[in-house]
Design a protein around this nucleic acid. Sequence first.
DNA 1: GTAGAAAAGTGCAACGACTCTACTTAGCGA
DNA 2: TCGCTAAGTAGAGTCGTTGCACTTTTCTAC
Lengths: 197, 197
Amino acid sequence: MTMPSAGRRDRKKAATRQAIADAALQLFLERGYDQVSIRDIADAADVSTATVFKHFSGKEALVFDQDEDRESQLIAAVRQRPSGQSILDALRHHILDTWPSIEAHPQAAEFTNLVNSTPVLSAYAERMWTRHTDSLGAAIADEFGVDHDNLTCVALARFVLEIPVLARGRQDRRAAIEAVFDILTHGWEPPSKPPAP
Amino acid sequence: MTMPSAGRRDRKKAATRQAIADAALQLFLERGYDQVSIRDIADAADVSTATVFKHFSGKEALVFDQDEDRESQLIAAVRQRPSGQSILDALRHHILDTWPSIEAHPQAAEFTNLVNSTPVLSAYAERMWTRHTDSLGAAIADEFGVDHDNLTCVALARFVLEIPVLARGRQDRRAAIEAVFDILTHGWEPPSKPPAP
DNA sequence: GTAGAAAAGTGCAACGACTCTACTTAGCGA
DNA sequence: TCGCTAAGTAGAGTCGTTGCACTTTTCTAC
């Protein structure tokens, strides 16, 4: 594995960060997002409020700790796909491989519930995905040798990044992901009517 | 036309609201969003800060004054479409008819620039559109007699509502809208390479 | 008309998120 | 061992936002 703890300093820094994130998540799950202040979190982690903001850009970021390198993974999935594989297939496999496991965590039920019941967190979660639209669109455009803001490529990036949001909370997430990729591949078709009740 | 000014009270209320919105927009364009406080706006409009929040839900809402009934228009476009017209066509015509005029306003350049250069405003603008995903998805589902959270319908709603965001700032907005609707209708295809330089 | 409900607006205090500044502490490299 | 730098602290301050008690204005019903 990687060795992120080059020295005692970095290790202590990571420990503080983790202590803050842990305290925050526990308090949020206990009382709800709006009922927990930064002060509460700082006290629980035994740090000052200023330290909290040294580690996290804002209150919402405390909830989504492990966000880091989704972007680079996405772009790598496009750039380093098996030769002969289409970009749509590469993205489909990447999302099928990486994403459902995030929701399959223990504690995921409570966590998902927390996010869905707190509007500011739902909004933040959506932006976490769509934030990467530009980079992914540019990567796709590179594969075809067109401008980075090429509409076709940016549109594909944006639609693909909506898929996790669309699949969130569905019973069969994998089927949902496949279904939406089908729309993108073959065009939209009216839903099949269910058998009459 | 409609008569929204039933009495003196409503007229004065509308006037105050307008005074606040005007003062806010002018100050924002002059100094930039972050350099204007709610107190500044309240002072410029000669009201108290509490009054500002009686009329607008938050600071961001001061920028997007005329947001109101996009949702009902969208749903009407689906429900009351000419018989025989597909839902995709109805939505395409609706967006082509209603949306490009919003950006064609005088002062639109400065305004667009303000929004694009202020992250919190870009995020808010996106949410203004995608906020209606659920209602539009439900309306589409109704047309086919399927569940309101039917994935195919919700996905279509979400993709369609992304189109204005995708077309924003393009040279030829109408062509951009058509192009994205083409993706939704026939499936995604790689972009055509431009002639080599 | 006039009384009184209803609503718009005010002034103020408060809370929480976040920032800034000046200061202490602790690891690190020479 | 001696600084240098980065992590952390305390505390004051800004700003968005809300709540409360109160005044003023308009509408409505008698």
